[in-house]
Design a protein around this nucleic acid. Structure first.
Lengths: 235, 235
DNA sequence: TCCGAACGTCTACGTTGTAGGTCTACAGTC
DNA sequence: GACTGTAGACCTACAACGTAGACGTTCGGA
């Protein structure tokens, strides 16, 4: 993901030798652990063990565990690249949305961090990698002729929707045992029929959830809604 | 939520005396602790202490801590009542959205649980209090003439949007020190101007976030988008 | 050559979730 | 009344956790 330090061979022998730990390495293996075992599977001790080091070195690269989690969320989010010079803002937003969804599916266990970690940190104190996409989207939209506040509004609407969608989609992914009967597969048979008739009857509809098309449908709604509500006034 | 044992006065003296603990009491004080200290402020020991009991009694009412958190999320979500017989489905959805927002603002520390706990549990194994609003909304929409899958789609769109919006709004609420200068208040002065010009220039716009109107605007977009995309065919 | 900083390691403390055992009080059966 | 099963409450104990503090080593720059 993030490139390793450019040169590693021509070092003054001793620095950055095999035993040297970098922040990138820490974050990368932390991400691996979370991807494999979920957020609760990550402990400082386990992470250190995975690195083959003493647990305490970690605190040379992060003030505490919370900051480390922020770092992981940041490295994932930093993979979201925005082209602020795109000609058509709407299709660029679509691309961003698809990329975001792709990232979320690639790291489902990180999604809780992505959506909740910001709650713990005021906006401007967040790592700059997290703010990069925001700034880029703002330039994209102002270049397209939107006012600053409108651009902000669009950004909020987009990411609000994206967060919601991704959370939705991951819920559906939780259970995919190869069970044939939808009712059984979803465990809906547990529900009393008298109280949850519709939910039970919609088993197949629930089981055949398609995140990609759901995303596109949502984007259709959102973008048409946005274009009818707000109009860019050309520069 | 689940009714307490019907009679409590005419007991054979000794049962259910002052010292008796119910699941509702556990969940209620757990909610209090979370509201006050955040999710990390809740430990089994602290909760027991708040109840004036031994920590281990808690395991008479919940299999483990995760289930207890689910219970807290459930009690909050169960306060969301839906009227499946409402005449106008769109305005009913609006009401639901406003109620949800109100709940979220009343218990901001529970919101992370509300949006992420479902990820840990397959849909049908979730407590029925959580599924009640879903079923009710489905009946509301099918009564309005929507097909089952369309109703499901609308439900997903609504709650996806709601989750996203609430997360957005809570982010803005994090920091409200009584600082006069917006730039300073948001800590944006920390950002290099060259790299984040727009973000810095939008300080006042960022500072004057209004969740209620933002919600209404989002609902406008969503509902108009939904009505143009899907049409109920009358029963 | 010396110094300060960074890096790595070790030990230790208080807290966490919860398994296991024990002791008590009561309900139901003879 | 005696016996038994069952549920509740309490205690102890354990492994794992995050991280403070101290100590040694290594290294770039003065």
């Amino acid at each position: 993901m993030t490139p390793p330090p450019a040169e590693h061979a021509g070092r003054p022998a001793g620095t950055n030798r095999d035993g040297k730990i970098t922040r990138e390495m820490v974050l990368a293996t932390a991400l691996e652990l979370i991807d494999r075992d979920g957020p609760d599977g990550l402990s400082m001790r386990r992470l250190a063990h995975a690195l083959g080091r003493d647990p305490m070195i970690l605190y040379r690269h992060t003030p505490n565990k919370a900051a480390l989690l922020d770092g992981v969320a940041e490295t994932v989010l930093a993979q979201l690249t925005v082209d602020p010079t795109a000609r058509d803002w709407a299709t660029e937003l679509r691309t961003i949305a698809r990329d975001y969804r792709r990232l979320a599916l690639a790291h489902p266990h990180v999604v809780p961090l992505l959506v909740t970690r910001p709650l713990a940190t005021p906006l401007a104190l967040r790592p700059q990698g997290t703010l990069r996409p925001l700034e880029d989207i703002l330039t994209l939209l102002t270049r397209a002729g939107f006012s600053g506040p409108d651009a902000l509004h669009i950004y909020r609407a987009l990411f609000g929707f994206l967060h919601g969608h991704v959370l939705n989609e991951l819920q559906e992914l939780i259970d995919n045992p190869a069970e044939t009967d939808d009712l059984l597969r979803l465990g809906l048979h547990r529900l009393p029929i008298a109280e949850f008739p519709l939910l039970r009857s919609l088993a197949t509809a629930l089981a055949s959830y398609n995140g990609a098309t759901e995303l596109e449908r949502g984007l259709d709604i959102l973008l048409t809604g946005l274009t009818t509500t707000l109009t860019p006034h050309p520069a």
